[in-house]
């Protein structure tokens, strides 16, 4: 067996035994790349050196978690997805007196603000509550601040228009030097908190769950477990939105979901094509 592969197994064990984080069901190829990246970031000579610091160095684990969940996203990524949420999902949500939305794996929060803007423009924000969760505290802090580099945000205005936005994205942020800051009024109904999809349980009854490009890092086993968690969190008729290239064909738990828009990976509990739930 390759030495580096042994070191990664030891890394996973150290995270589990010393710190209670379970990465054993993360897909191996991307996990390996991220751990290799950590070695470079922390100027370590090997993964074994990381392992040693994980065991002995106070506070090092937080920096490892930061590096292991490298959240790369943008506002209104895949604009058509947001447009379709607005056109096909929001009219159903509008029938509920209170709307609970779970943004699972919110990373730096770009999608949370995107969603908040769309809800605002649809007149649904006041009765919505968005639970934005991630297992990375550093990412949650950035998400709550809502500050992004202007250079990252270059395409976001175009995305917003393509998503069907009815104003100008600049109405929702103030620009200063190299940064933009999202209007903090957008988070008045948003709760950011730590939740780990690997180990934590159902915490709300949701009408819509967004979890885009998070399960792609999980093995089939963990993907299935998480889809089961989503299914159990959603009301009957509740919606799930995944990344546009995600594949749930191998998950038994996915049988409870039917297509709202298959190409965009928008599903509904009990929607067309869904099979009876086996809880």
């Amino acid at each position: 067996m390759d030495v580096e592969d042994i070191e990664i197994q030891l890394f996973v064990r150290a995270m589990q035994l010393r710190h209670g984080y379970d990465f054993s069901e993360y897909a191996p190829a991307s996990l390996k790349r991220r751990v290799q990246q950590l070695v470079r970031t922390h100027d370590a000579s090997s993964i074994s050196e990381l392992n040693s610091r994980l065991l002995h160095e106070e506070g090092f684990v937080a920096r490892v978690i930061e590096g292991l969940s490298v959240p790369v996203s943008e506002m209104f990524r895949d604009p058509l997805v947001f447009r379709t949420l607005r056109d096909k999902v929001f009219p159903v949500l509008a029938s509920y007196p209170e709307i609970n939305i779970w943004q699972a794996g919110c990373a730096h929060g770009q999608e949370v603000y995107s969603l908040a803007i769309l809800l605002e423009e649809a007149g649904l924000y006041e009765r919505s509550r968005i639970y934005a969760t991630d297992f990375n505290d550093a990412a949650l802090a950035i998400a709550a601040d809502g500050i992004y580099a202007t250079r990252e945000a270059r395409d976001w205005s175009r995305n917003y228009i393509e998503a069907g936005g009815s104003h100008s994205l600049s109405d929702y942020y103030s620009a200063r030097y190299d940064f933009i800051k999202l209007d903090q009024r957008l988070r008045r109904n948003v709760t950011f908190f730590n939740h780990n999809l690997v180990t934590d349980e159902v915490f709300c009854e949701a009408h819509l769950i967004l979890c885009r490009n998070v399960l792609i890092y999980f093995t089939n086993t963990l993907q299935d477990r998480t889809l089961g968690l989503f299914r159990d969190s959603l009301v009957r008729g509740g919606f799930l939105c995944l990344g546009t290239r995600e594949n749930i064909d191998f998950s038994p738990a996915a049988a409870g979901f039917g297509d709202v828009d298959h190409a965009l990976r928008i599903y509904q509990v009990g929607g067309p094509g869904a099979r009876a739930l086996s809880r």
Partner: peptide
């Protein structure tokens, strides 16, 4: 490989995707 994602081959010869940097 699809646009916008890294395409990877897992040790079991199945594809996986990532949106890492």
């Amino acid at each position: 490989a699809p646009s916008g994602y890294h395409l990877m081959v897992e040790p079991n010869f199945h594809f996986s995707l990532s949106v890492d940097a």
